[in-house]
Design a protein around this nucleic acid. Structure first.
Length: 479
RNA sequence: GGCGGCAUAGCCAAGUGGUAAGGCAAGGGUCUGCAAAACCUUCACCCCCAGUUCAAAUCUGGGUGCCGCCUCCA
């Protein structure tokens, strides 16, 4: 078993990863709120935890990876109201879009993908449990978590409850109604009452909707249990989202929610966080129209996951260029390219063969050493380039193929397909190529070189394209 | 204001005590009708100041600049 070090936000240190039970590893990450298209920031999050999940399986762990879908949310409801459709329709549309984006980025689907709407009764039970233990209180159809009743509040984000007070009070002043209801300004909603006719569910406190944080606590419990190994997400979720999850779950269960808290940094634009609210985002679909999933992934992985990435076309162009070199080297592999949208599995039997080759044994060691150090994919990628150099420089056909196989296998561990698309023409390129051929033929005709122009037309016909000479010039069409 | 983080070549970036991975770009060379690819090759005293140490990009203190969280947010 590999000795993997991970940076734990809870302690602020790198720690040796030890699962709770043997080699079983439970991971939960907060998935998308499906009210709009996903942008590159979401792509980074998905890619980072996809790689972690893949690497842990590679390292021999029996991983259960859970990523939820938040399909109950004010933003979804607002959008549905604006469009005059039902909230489920908004959610469904963006769930499909999210899945499509993930597939294009070769992000393996999670083992379990719970949706908030499937867990309403469990959430209500969870809240009832908190009230019974004196950690929550109901007021006029709302239920709030009583932060003063949970002494560890603020431990993850390193915040003191009294420090929060000043900031929170300003919020509350503008919301008099809330101020009257809450015991402490920083208390957060577990359940929010809504008026008849609005989107909501029946509960002991009347019609209402769950608060944002309770769904994750509830789904973690349902899918993985009361204590999980790894809880991961974007660093902006540390506070208040993850802090509140801890408060809810630990207040109810009296045991740690997660042993390791891992957080990824952002994608920035001009050194500012890419965010919906700032309007500086690029959607995944927009970028996929220009760059391949592999290119986007390589760009993301060349920076360590806890460091911000400044987004730029330059960075993507650079990654595309670099990727081409890996693809060329991987093309010597005789192994099939797998781009199936399926849970990742490392081919251990195949990899065992690599150990007989000293070049590959050394490569394996350096790759694993890099990844064991808090998933340093940037360094691991550097080793891929070193291996691809060896492939390209080798004249031993047998070894070259073996090295290329390994390149593809380990790249796959990082989620890179290295699919060779160098000779796949998109419609636009094909059209330009035809224009070029037709122009050359026109030149030949201009010189009355009919032997050449007829040869071009015949060969194109064999290739499935008819050229038609008209008064306005030559046109072409597929047969 | 409180808390946390970052500062490495033209650009991006890894590296937590022993004298700087990798990618992009650029220059030289081999090959080549030309070009591309490939191969060989060149390119950094690590923001500033002080300190600890035989030894610091790496540790400590101070400074400067930038970012994130404290409100929805990956």
């Amino acid at each position: 078993m590999q000795k993997i070090k991970v940076f734990n936000t809870l302690t602020g240190k790198k720690e040796t990863f030890v699962p709770l039970q043997g080699n079983k590893v439970s991971i939960y990450t907060c998935g998308p709120t499906v009210y709009d298209s996903s942008h590159l920031g979401h792509a980074r999050m998905a890619i980072v935890w996809d790689v972690v999940q893949r690497y842990l399986r590679f390292a021999g762990y029996d991983v259960t990876f859970v990523r939820n879908i938040t399909d109950v949310d004010d933003k979804i409801i607002n959008k549905a109201n604006a469009l005059g459709v039902r909230p489920e329709q908004v959610a469904r549309r963006y769930i499909f879009e999210f899945w499509r984006d993930m597939a294009a980025l070769n992000v393996a689907p999670p083992d379990v993908e719970p949706r908030a709407t499937e867990f309403l009764s469990q959430m209500i039970q969870f809240i009832e449990g908190l009230i019974a233990k004196g950690h929550a209180y109901a007021v006029d159809g709302d239920v709030y978590f009583d932060e003063a009743s949970f002494e560890n509040y603020g431990r993850l984000a390193r915040k003191q409850l009294d420090e929060l007070r000043s900031g929170a009070r300003e919020q509350v002043l503008s919301q008099d109604e809330l101020a009257k209801r809450k015991r402490h300004p920083a208390d957060f909603a577990l359940w929010k009452g809504v008026a008849e006719g609005q989107t909501g569910w029946q509960s002991p406190w009347g019609l209402g909707r769950p608060g944002w944080h309770i769904e994750c606590s509830t789904m973690i419990k349902a899918a993985l249990g009361e204590t999980i190994d790894i809880h991961a997400g974007g660093e902006d979720l540390i506070f208040p989202h993850h802090e509140n999850e801890i408060a809810q779950s630990e207040a109810l269960h009296d045991k740690p929610l997660a042993r390791y808290w891992l957080h990824n940094s952002f994608v920035n634009v001009n050194k500012e966080k890419m965010a919906k609210s700032l309007g500086n985002f690029k959607t995944i679909a927009e970028m996929l129209a220009v760059y391949s999933g592999d290119t986007i992934r390589l760009m993301m992985l060349q920076t360590h996951y806890r460091k911000p990435i400044d987004f730029s076309a330059d960075a993507l162009d650079s990654a595309r260029q670099a990727l081409t070199r890996l693809v060329r080297a991987a093309a010597f592999s005789i192994r099939p390219v797998s781009t199936a949208f399926a849970p990742y599995e490392f081919d251990a039997a195949e990899a065992a063969k690599f150990a007989d080759d000293e070049v590959l044994a050394a490569f394996h060691d350096s790759f694993v050493t890099a990844m064991n150090n808090d998933f340093n994919a940037a360094e691991a990628v550097a080793h891929l380039f070193a291996l691809s150099d060896k492939v390209m420089a080798s004249e031993d056909v047998i070894r070259r193929a073996a090295w290329s196989d390994a390149l593809r296998e380990y790249a796959g561990l990082l989620g890179l397909t290295l699919a060779d698309t160098r000779q796949e023409l998109d419609a636009q390129t094909a059209s330009r190529v035809m224009d070029a051929v037709v122009a050359i033929r026109q030149d030949a005709r201009g010189r009355k070189d009919f032997a050449l122009s007829d040869q071009i037309r015949d060969k194109l016909a064999l290739a499935g394209v008819n050229v038609n000479d008209t008064k306005g010039g030559a046109t072409w069409e597929k047969k």
